[in-house]
């Protein structure tokens, strides 16, 4: 967690620096150069990219498809042992079998619910603390140092203690996931609020905004880009924490499915669990990015 989290903070800082470009030059951020060129070309009535190669949308998936084909060929030819790595077809078969039996839907549902509730609880706490500490000097002085100390503890290192506290039930998983997502969201929300353009806040005050309306119209929208960075890092940590805590002890969920399969040497199911984690992680990221694009449509960096 420390590595990911430190990295998350670094990203937050970098964003902030980008945002702090001298305001006289351009307080709205400039669209990337390429975008401008594209727009110019679009104005000329020409396609933004030559259409000689039509595989644009497919190209990113070319490499994975080739890898899967090689993998299948290797398995079929007997180069790869089933004990080490099942063939893609075996994984698909395992997927189909579990889908029909209803186990898959149950496990994914249980894991998804755990992930979401952890995100909701930890995320809300991190968000509220970030806002409070960004807005209020008193709150910052009271809690920021404590939070900065706590966040350096790898939250997975607390597993032994968490098991002693909560046993191996749902509370332990919820606690770990919440703890994991809390810090990236806290740090980025806090930095986002801290770095809202002072000139805009002064402007808002001149025009009679204060308290809630100043927050709603100036501070929150100004911090939003940074908050989204926090959210996307938190999603990564959320899945990571869930995988670990489900592997330790659980009687349902994707981690449980993988662990049980390991005991019976069902490598196909173990790999299936990995694929599902990858798919869920990607899905979460796509949702976050869509939200980001919608909420930040004013920002030239998100305009197409």
């Amino acid at each position: 967690m420390t590595i990911v989290d430190t990295f998350a903070e670094g990203r937050g800082l970098r964003r902030i620096r980008e945002d702090r470009v001298p305001s006289t030059a351009n307080e709205y951020g400039k669209p990337p150069k390429g975008a401008a060129e594209k727009a110019v070309r679009a104005n000329d009535g020409q396609p933004s990219r030559p259409r000689s190669f039509s595989g644009g949308a497919f190209l990113p998936y070319l490499l994975p498809v080739i890898l899967v084909i090689l993998w299948q060929a290797g398995s079929s030819a007997g180069f790869i042992s089933d004990r080490i790595m099942p063939s893609p077809v075996a994984v698909i078969a395992a997927f189909w079998e579990r889908l029909l039996s209803g186990e898959l839907a149950r496990d994914v549902g249980v894991s998804g619910a755990r992930a979401l509730s952890g995100l909701l609880i930890g995320g809300s706490i991190g968000f509220l603390l970030g806002i409070a500490n960004g807005v209020s000097k008193l709150s910052e002085q009271l809690t920021d140092t404590t939070l900065q100390m706590l966040r350096t503890i790898p939250h997975l290192a607390m597993i032994p203690l968490v098991i002693l506290w909560f046993g191996i039930g749902e509370e332990a998983k919820l606690f770990l996931t919440s703890l994991g997502v809390l810090f990236p969201i806290y740090l980025n929300t806090y930095h986002g609020v801290k770095n809202v353009d002072r000139d805009l806040i002064e402007m808002g005050q001149i025009y009679g905004m204060s308290g809630w309306s100043l927050f709603r119209k100036v501070i929150f929208p100004g911090a939003l880009p940074s908050i989204f960075v926090g959210l996307r890092y938190a999603l990564g940590i959320m899945w990571l924490t869930l995988i670990v805590s489900e592997s330790i002890a659980a009687n349902s969920g994707i981690g449980y499915m993988a662990n049980t399969a390991r005991e019976f040497m069902m490598t196909d199911v173990v790999v299936l669990a990995l694929v599902i984690y990858a798919a869920l992680g990607k899905l979460a990221d796509v949702i976050a990015r869509t939200l980001e694009r919608t909420a930040l449509s004013w920002n030239p960096a998100y305009q197409r």
Binding site: T24, E27, Y207, K217, P221
Partner: peptide, 26 residues
């Protein structure tokens, strides 16, 4: 009284019309 600064200080997340409406107060 109202003041216009050297920088426009518009809210980038508000449309042009909403930015002007800010001038009417809450």
């Amino acid at each position: 009284s109202r003041i216009v600064f050297q920088e426009p200080r518009l809210l980038p997340w508000f449309s042009v019309a909403d930015n002007v409406a800010v001038g009417l107060g809450d």
